[in-house]
Each structure stands twice: as structure tokens, then as C-alpha cells.
Design a binder for these strands. Structure first.
Length: 575
RNA sequence: CGGGGAGUGGCUCAGCUUGGUAGAGCACUUGGUUCGGGACCAAGGGGUCGCAGGUUCAAAUCCUGUCUCCCCGACCA
């Protein structure tokens, strides 16, 4: 293959990063000439990004094909009807880009493709004999994110590999799911990502189980609780810890809750201070939420934090949001800060499971400036449903072993779901069994954010000078540059470039009329894994400088040895 | 949506408080000197100061509205 010539390529590198770039991947992908912003959460992929993304996609295709996946390409523009069938036209709310055609009919831009693939399955699959099927595509998704941020990490238009499995029964789904999980492990490993597969919250997708593939980085937006001693790892949206959480600092039990005046007290902290002195662990925190627009109460301990995803799971609602003060007052008769669940009968109450046996607790009396003490959760909030609502904290016990949990930030690069029959039932995708009965197809859905894989690799692999790509997804494997203008240097560089090409490397030949320093800086910034520099001194002995981006050492290598050495390096790196 | 910040040559920013008709560095063009880690000198090109109204003899600067972008909280690959 011919080496690419830097002078002919469009690689707009920048000395300074745009002021609004906060995270490393954003800063470096812009500076190194991979991406440019078109609008909030909308990015141009310039040639270098396209090359890297194409490599990621190639790895994804290989691993999908290896488990029997068949590639499709479905429309991004969807008629509203199909989303109304599954009920998600409403569920997706403002996250969906919606538009009308010239006749006024409703359309949307696809956020994901469960509905479209399920429609194909419904229309075309008739018999259990046709199953299992594994279908996938690499396609553009549109989501009207409320808050795009962090460069390419959270955007409104992105590329997703989405795969769907169709099985006759749950056992088949388990196999398909395991195939995908193993494929994901290979994909992310090959892309040079350190990752953990964690237990996840299913959110709007529905279904029985799911795992997220997380890359540990502060640029991520999820919190993961993981046990260093065993394999337990979970998104804090589902993570548990081993009880007892902390000693329940029980107050004095009373025969019945007793009111006491708390003028001006509106916060847990205020109630901890004198003259009240009620520790947060003895307080009940009562929060009002709208779950699918129906008000509910959520109660956690005063020193705990409510996890909204857990509340969503507990209520079974599609959407959960904090209630407005204007909604709360008519419901409970008091303002936030004086709320409690004791005696509340006009809305569902959810109490965190760790409070099941709590006695002698303090809570708001639903009367401004008044609290209750001596509250016995079982006795006084008897109608409540117990649920896991609290967010786990670092250092708490692992639910699976005697280890202690650690918490860290992570970036979600992939998510696999056992959907079950949610979509096949609502969209009537059935097949006939051997005994002639109809059964809904059992489905799974599996996503990978392609740009996120690229960005995650940058987050993980960079230094002060720029990106350090793994060979597998680098835009070029090697770059070659000359130090000086002598024609013999350029000639030698051409030869070395050809040798690298014969070894199977993609080569960028920096033939620009620039000083060596400029070429070095750009090579480091762009992050090409292997750099060969041709200079007068080395060439006098028939040698060139061989340097890996990730290391410090510079080796002098005879030009005749470059090909063999490159071949060996590539074999070692790509396996 | 709630809260905070910012829009001035391609990029990073100054100028705004105290109105007087736009600047620096980088980038770009030309010439010269350089040439192993983002060179130097000289001469150039490039901006209706986000947009729309208003105040004023005069608006980048003051007022109102509006759009866009960024950051912090609720969603997701």
C-alpha cells in the first residue's frame, strides 16, 4: 500500500485547544485534527477520526460476524407509527428528535432500533426453525440530549453498533446474551480499553437483566461500585452493599410518635445542630417524586442519598422527577424540609429496606416548624413498600464477599440487555413452535458507542504531548519523517515507508516542508504508535531512528531490518 | 428545564467599568535568513465586535429582546 503523504492530507492540528474543552479526549481530538464541532453535541469527523473509527468498526464487525451476526443497515428516519406500537413514542419524551413530512405526518430520527428490527422479525420470521437470529448494524443514532458535553462523550448524533438477538426461549436468549458478552470483551480488549462489565439499570429499555461495559475514567459520568476482592461490580444505580450498613443509632422508643417544635429547621443538618441534636442517622429523609406524573414518597435515612434510578425501578415508572413545591403542599400540607411519611395515605410510600426495623426515628410532621420523634417505621409507616432506594457508599461491605466496595467514575462504552418479550409481545412478533402453538420471540439488544470507544481510548492513553493510540485503532500504524532537506533523506524515507507498507503497516509519510521540531510535535500529538525518523547522522551508517510513541527509547535500526522488525511488532501488537 | 458563565479576524484572548468608530499572540501570504523537538526578520491579507431593536451627535462598550455555545444538577452508547 502507498503511504499517505502528510502534505496532501487534511490534518488541521492546533497549538491551542478550544477554551471550552474540559476533558482530555475532547481537547486532544480537537487539537490533533480528528474532530470539529458543528453544534452542541454534533461533531464533524475529519479524516483521522474516520480512519480510527473505521478500525473500531472493523473490529466490531469481525467479532459480531464471529458469533453469527448478520449485518443490516436500517433507516435513521422512522414513521411515528412504529414507535407508537411499542409505546415508546410517548416514553422517549423530549429525548426523541421529531419532525413532520410535507403532509404533516409524524416522523422521528431513530434513537435506537428495537422497533424496526422487531418489525422485520414479525413480518418475516414464522417458525422456531428460523431461530436463533443475530442481527446487527452500525448506524447513526439521534438523541436530543438535554445536556451534550465533554466533546464526543455525550452527543446528540453518534454511531452505534446495535445488535439484536431473536430466540425461541429464555435459554436461547441466555446463550445469545453470553455470546454477545464474550464478543464485547474481545472487542474492547482489542481496542486497547481496560474495562469492567457491571450490573446495570435497564431504564427505558425494559427487560430482565443488563450489563454495562465501563471504562474507568474521571471523564465518565457513571458511578460504579466494585469489590477488589471478588468480581462484584455494579452501577450505583443498582449496586447494593452488605448489611448492616451502619449501626442504627436508635433513639428512645415511644408508644407513639411525638411532635416537637423545630422553628426554622428545614434541613437534616439543621436538625443535627443544637438545640435539637438529632444525628442524621436517626432521621428519616422524605422526598416527593413524580413517577410517571403520579406523586410518590421516597424515604431514606438522613445520612443516605436517594438514587433516582432505584426509585424508578421500585415504582415501575418510565420517568421519575422531583416534585415541585407547588405539587407537594396540597399533597402533604407542608413545605420541603418539614415532610414525613407518618400517617400519609393519599399516595404510595417507598421506604428504603435498611430502615425496615428502625425505631426511635425523627421525621417531619407535615406541618412547617414541627417534627416527630419516636417514629417506629414498621408501626408508623406501615403501608409503605420496602425497596432498595439508597445509593451505596465507598467502604461499605461487598454484597458477595467480605470485601469493601470502592466507588469510581466510569464511562459507558457498551450495554447489553435481555429484553425478553417486551417488544415481541407489544408488536406481535411470534413464531410457531413444533407443537403448532404461537410464542413471542425472546429478544436481546446489544449496543456499543463507536465514538465513545475512540474517546475512551484517548482518555486512557495520552500524555502531555498528545494521544498514544494502541496499534489496533490508530489512524496510522507508523509515521515517517525526515530531519533535513537533503534529497537522499527523502529517498531513504520513501524506501523505509515502502518497507513498512510491505510489513502490513498503514504509513503516514510526513513529507511537509517543515522543521523537524514541527513534525515531531505533530507526530506526538496525533499519537501514531511507531515513528521512524531519517537523519543525516544515522543514514551515514545506513540506519534510521525507530521510536514507539508510548516509550522513551530510540533505537537505531538498519534500513534493511525495518520490514522484518515492523512485521514482528505488528504481529505482537495485533495478535 | 432550573442555576452559573461566554459570544470581538481561522484559534487563544485584550478592549467594555469611565461611549469617540478595533488590538495582541498564534495561524495565513510574500521575500530573506534558518533548519534534530512547535525558528527569526521584514512586508502584507483578513473582523458590519452573535443577531434585532433602543438610548446618543457618536455604541464592541449603555438598555431591552433574541439566538448560540460552555459549565453545574435530572437521561444514555
Amino acid at each position: 500500500m502507498q503511504p499517505a503523504r502528510y502534505s496532501q492530507m487534511f490534518i488541521p492540528t492546533l497549538k491551542e485547544a478550544p477554551a471550552d474543552a474540559q476533558v482530555a479526549s475532547h481537547r486532544l481530538l480537537v487539537r490533533a485534527g480528528f474532530i470539529r464541532q458543528l453544534g452542541a453535541g454534533i461533531y464533524d469527523h475529519l479524516p483521522l477520526a474516520r480512519r480510527t473509527l473505521a478500525r473500531v468498526e472493523r473490529i466490531v464487525r469481525q467479532e459480531m460476524d464471529a458469533i453469527g451476526g448478520q449485518e443490516f443497515h436500517l433507516p435513521a428516519l422512522h414513521p411515528a407509527e412504529i414507535w407508537k406500537e411499542s409505546g415508546r413514542w410517548e416514553v422517549m419524551g423530549d429525548n426523541m428528535f421529531r419532525l413532520k413530512d410535507r403532509k404533516g405526518a409524524d416522523y422521528c430520527l431513530g434513537m435506537t432500533h428495537e422497533e424496526i428490527f422487531t418489525a422485520i422479525a414479525r413480518d418475516e420470521l414464522r417458525s422456531y426453525r428460523q431461530l436463533p437470529q443475530v442481527w446487527y448494524q452500525i448506524q447513526t443514532k439521534f438523541r436530543d440530549e438535554p445536556r451534550p458535553k465533554s466533546g464526543v462523550l455525550r452527543v446528540r448524533q453518534f454511531t452505534m453498533k446495535d445488535a439484536y438477538s431473536f430466540d425461541v426461549d429464555a435459554a436461547g436468549l441466555d446463550r445469545s446474551y453470553d455470546d454477545q458478552r464474550r464478543a464485547y470483551e474481545k472487542i474492547f480488549t482489542r481496542c486497547g480499553l481496560d474495562f469492567v462489565a457491571v450490573q446495570a439499570h435497564s431504564g427505558a429499555m425494559g427487560g430482565s437483566g443488563s450489563q454495562e461495559f465501563m471504562v474507568r475514567t474521571d471523564a465518565g459520568e457513571d458511578d460504579v461500585a466494585a469489590c477488589p476482592k471478588c468480581r462484584y461490580a455494579a452501577n450505583t444505580e443498582t449496586a447494593n452493599s452488605r448489611g448492616p450498613i451502619r449501626p442504627v443509632d436508635a433513639g428512645e422508643p415511644l408508644a407513639a410518635p411525638r411532635k416537637f417544635p423545630t422553628p426554622g429547621v428545614r434541613t437534616i443538618e439543621a436538625l443535627e445542630r443544637p438545640p435539637h441534636g438529632r444525628s442524621a442517622a436517626r432521621q428519616l429523609k422524605t422526598l416527593v417524586y413524580a413517577a410517571d406524573e403520579k406523586l410518590v414518597l421516597a424515604v431514606v435515612r438522613g445520612d443516605d442519598e436517594l438514587d433516582e434510578a432505584k426509585l424508578q425501578t421500585a415504582t415501575g415508572a418510565a420517568q421519575v422527577r422531583p416534585a415541585q413545591p407547588e405539587e407537594i403542599r396540597p399533597l402533604l400540607g407542608a413545605d420541603p424540609g418539614s415532610l414525613g411519611a407518618v400517617g400519609v395515605g393519599n399516595c404510595p410510600v417507598f421506604v428504603d429496606g435498611t430502615l425496615a426495623a428502625a425505631v426511635g426515628m425523627v421525621t417531619g410532621a407535615n406541618e412547617n416548624d414541627v417534627h416527630l420523634e419516636g417514629v417506629d417505621v414498621r408501626r408508623d409507616i406501615g403501608g409503605a413498600k420496602l425497596a432498595d432506594l439508597r445509593k451505596v457508599k465507598a467502604g461499605e461491605g461487598c454484597p458477595r464477599c467480605d470485601g469493601a466496595l470502592e466507588l469510581f467514575k466510569a464511562l459507558e462504552v457498551g450495554h447489553i440487555f435481555k429484553l425478553g418479550t417486551k417488544y415481541s409481545v407489544s408488536m406481535k412478533a411470534n413464531v410457531l413452535l413444533a407443537d403448532g402453538k404461537e410464542t413471542p420471540i425472546v429478544m436481546g439488544s446489544y449496543g456499543i458507542g463507536v465514538e465513545r470507544v475512540m474517546a475512551a481510548a484517548v482518555e486512557l492513553h495520552h500524555d502531555a504531548d498528545g494521544i498514544i493510540w494502541p496499534f489496533s485503532i490508530a489512524p496510522f500504524h507508523a509515521t515517517i519523517l525526515t530531519m533535513g532537506k537533503e534529497p537522499e533523506l527523502a529517498r531513504a524515507a520513501e524506501e523505509v515507508a515502502a518497507a513498512l507498507g510491505r510489513a502490513g503497516m498503514d504509513v503516514l509519510f510526513d513529507d511537509r516542508d517543515e522543521r523537524a521540531g514541527v513534525k515531531f510535535k505533530d507526530a506526538d500529538l496525533i499519537g501514531i504508535p511507531l515513528r521512524i525518523a531519517v537523519g543525516k547522522r544515522g543514514l551515514a551508517e545506513g540506519k534510521v531512528e525507530w521510536k514507539l510513541r508510548r516509550g522513551k527509547e530510540v533505537d537505531l535500526v538498519a534500513t534493511g531490518d525495518v520490514e522484518a522488525r515492523a512485521r514482528a511488532l505488528l504481529a505482537a501488537e495485533l495478535g
